[in-house]
Design a protein around this nucleic acid. Sequence first.
DNA 1: CGTTAGCACTCAACGTGATGGAGTGCTAAC
DNA 2: GTTAGCACTCCATCACGTTGAGTGCTAACG
Lengths: 340, 340
Amino acid sequence: MDERKQRILQAIVQDYIESAEPVGSRTIARRHDLGVSPATIRNEMADLEMLGYLEHIHTSSGRIPSSKGYRFYVDDLLPSKPLDEEEKALIDKWYMERVRRIDEVFQETARIISHVTKNVSLVLAPQMTQAAFRCLQFLPLDDRRAIAVLMTDAGFIENKIVDMPDGAAFEDFQRMALVINGCLAGHTLDAISPAVMKNIREEIGDESLFEAAQEVIHRSLDTGKHERLYLGGTSEILSQPEFHDVEKVKEILLMFEEEQLLKDILHAHLGEGLKVTIGKENEVRGMQDCSLMTATYHLDGELLGTIAVLGPTRMEYGKAMTLLNYMNGHLADVVKKFRW
Amino acid sequence: MDERKQRILQAIVQDYIESAEPVGSRTIARRHDLGVSPATIRNEMADLEMLGYLEHIHTSSGRIPSSKGYRFYVDDLLPSKPLDEEEKALIDKWYMERVRRIDEVFQETARIISHVTKNVSLVLAPQMTQAAFRCLQFLPLDDRRAIAVLMTDAGFIENKIVDMPDGAAFEDFQRMALVINGCLAGHTLDAISPAVMKNIREEIGDESLFEAAQEVIHRSLDTGKHERLYLGGTSEILSQPEFHDVEKVKEILLMFEEEQLLKDILHAHLGEGLKVTIGKENEVRGMQDCSLMTATYHLDGELLGTIAVLGPTRMEYGKAMTLLNYMNGHLADVVKKFRW
DNA sequence: CGTTAGCACTCAACGTGATGGAGTGCTAAC
DNA sequence: GTTAGCACTCCATCACGTTGAGTGCTAACG
């Protein structure tokens, strides 16, 4: 793969991303100053096709990049492009004006991403399982039930109704809360070990109360895992010519409805930094014509969640990458403003 | 509008709903046993068009119903069709198997509606503003803040961080809670009158504490108003031939993204029982080719929320109506199971 | 030996015209 | 009032020729 081939591949991918039409040797020669004639480019293109970087619908149509072609482009040929100052300002203004509560941060983040990239955006809101336990408190509800309120370090609160075992009084629950708070403080919710549980058991003493505690912890964590996904710009894909086919759109909308599936996908990419999955590299049916770019964001070293751009394989990788990188850093600052 | 005209109109609407193609006099004569020849039907159709119930793309295409035609059909000609026992069983099973927590009820309700009607469904989850106040409790957070936990009769819980005024101790807040609980019990959240507030003021005595109370009530209610909307079956509209045009689909998807708009629409129909808005009767741009059927559901006489079906004007009104009526009654039972 | 011009060939896209079918509207007969 | 008959309209479809973009190959060039 000599330099000229790379430049030609780059030119083809860029032109195709822009025009959405198969690109021919003549166009490349005209638009990019490669110093060679269309005939030479044709020869190189034939080579690139042989190597698997380009595809051909039929003789006499131009070439389009294959998944492998895009992959090479993304990994080695992507021109770095800093974000417009203008766009940065827009983003700041957007957050300033529209976000009032912490849960609006993610909704608006999704909006911004889809607005800037003209693609679908996905934002997986911070996950309590990754957050550190802060405290658990009980409120009396009636003589058989109490409300458990769980707080994490990152400042999220969840609540849950719990049954009190026969014979237990609300005071027992308050004592239980003290024990649990003492033992669990600082632990992340998904790393509560048997050892810690044993500790709690010993401190509580009473067996039936410990069972209740177990139940409470279990159910509280269950709520905590209930992470939220925000989707933005779903209508944007319709602007892309490759999705003028209603069948394809339907497949994608169907995928959007399967929230759990999307969450799982984003989950799988958690903690991997910025990652691009191109076309057929995606295993999920319906995403084979798409590329997914994901990034995970942190707050003081603590993993928070995932933001992603979903578009056609023909998406503007450079722009999306720049944006995600920017949002990545920025999001922590915005969240911090709402932290206590 | 004599009886024969009505029967012909009914036949045309039904056939058009089924086939999505303009219907001609011959088809009507063949498929419906009206005892008259196509020529007679043609004459009647010309009359119906004159009266505004039918439309005509060009000479020599069949007729399609106008908004007025659908309106008459829905109001006067709709054959009542009870729900299949089979479908009822399916719905029960669905709720049984998939719903574990109260907030999943609405998600699944949306799924069921879109699955049965093959259209988009909307479910506005119970609104705390309409719910009766049950109690408010505080939990200490640090020395300047507390967590306010608000509960309603219908069993929904919301929480919110509140600042404590300088000099106020957590004990003051607990006293405040007692007063507020005493005064507000049983009131619906959107009907807290100045008189009640005055009462609270007198009982609290301390002025700066009352201001804090006001702030707390205000902010808690603010959270309470934060109702949720569930959307289901968005991909279903793509199956309808009238939405094979990508531009139209785009307009609708765009509308789906404007959650607040949808909430407002459903809100406007709150408490009106079952209501159908047909085609151009809709004021919202993008919904002019659609019909919206809404119904509000109750729990022990208390208004809970709205369920709706959104489809092309050509939707199966009879089926949608039957289903919404059934869900209407059923939903209360399902919610009741999670009530305490 | 790499590069280039030239040329034949391929294929999609487009416009054109012919054809058929579904449906209407009108008129005259029943 | 109802119906059969008929001329007319319009859409959908297909076949057909044309055009233009693009390739692949070959032979000439520096």
